[in-house]
């Protein structure tokens, strides 16, 4: 059997929080080596969809496949990297201990080398033995980026990755993502920072109140549109 060509596949995904439908029949398909920017206003369902794709939440209805397999399977999670709203690192541990911990969880073969490499990449090598609680906000964010990349994932699921990043961290993340795409990695990223996201994205999907309003390739024209165009949607009724 040949491997699935799509890296991320969502088929008629519904998610209910009580009676409220956070997602209403969302279907998406992302090819390998592409980057999908997930756009929409607050409450549109971007985070809910990303959490389902990351296996953190189960869909109420519908099906999700990451690299052809279910998101909760360990084999899938080993190949996926998730960076959510929180940085997902431990304040009591040092930068190196944090990366080693996640390298152990992901079964990275040469953990020490991987931790050193990513500490170097995010320019935290000189403070690798410092506890995270003593780090500045920018340093913590860079460590979070290293944490998401430490196992060299094939699919990256990033929830508002540029939010509250300083310019240096934005530049770093963009470079790391470009390198990842060059080696065939796929990314789905939700964002409000359109300029940064659209520069990277090959495809765009627009969610509105849990429904998919648009999905298609990113065009040059999209870069020239004012950001508000993506967040203004028709009112029902």
């Amino acid at each position: 059997m040949s491997p699935a060509s799509e890296a991320v596949l969502a088929s008629d995904v519904w998610k209910f929080h009580g009676d409220f439908p956070a997602l209403r029949g969302v279907s998406l398909r992302t090819e390998r080596g592409t980057c999908l920017a997930l756009l929409g206003r607050n409450g549109a369902g971007k985070t809910t969809l990303l959490r389902i794709l990351a296996g953190l939440s189960a869909p109420s209805r519908g099906d999700v496949r990451i690299l052809g397999t279910a998101p909760r399977l360990p084999v899938t999670r080993r190949r996926a990297g998730y960076l959510g709203h929180g940085i997902g690192i431990y304040d009591e541990l040092t930068a190196r201990e944090n990366l080693l911990h996640f390298a152990r969880l992901y079964g990275v073969e040469n953990k020490e080398a991987a931790a050193s490499k990513w500490l170097e990449r995010v320019d935290l090598k000189r403070v690798e033995d410092g506890r995270v609680r003593e780090f500045s906000r920018g340093m913590r964010q860079r460590l979070a980026i290293a944490r998401a990349f430490v196992h060299e994932p094939d699919v990256l699921l990033l929830d508002e990755p540029f939010t509250s990043l300083d310019d240096r961290a934005i530049h770093l993340l963009q470079n790391l993502l470009r390198e990842a795409f060059a080696r065939g990695c796929t990314a789905v990223l939700s964002t409000h920072q359109l300029r940064e996201a659209l520069e990277l994205a090959t495809n765009v999907a627009l969610l509105d109140r849990g429904k998919l309003k648009f999905a298609g390739p990113r065009t040059q024209a999209m870069l020239d549109l004012p950001p508000s165009i993506y967040f203004e949607t028709e009112t029902e009724g």
């Binding site: 959490r51 990351a54 296996g55 953190l56 360990p74 084999v75 999670r77 080993r78 996926a80 998730y82 959510g84 709203h85 929180g86 940085i87 997902g88 690192i89 431990y90 304040d91 996640f102 969880l105 992901y106 079964g107 944490r147």
Partner: peptide, 15 residues
């Protein structure tokens, strides 16, 4: 819960 580490752990491949 601090820094949403639980999400990072659940998203990892451990059972």
């Amino acid at each position: 819960l601090q820094n949403d580490c639980l999400d990072a752990v659940i998203a990892s491949p451990i059972a």
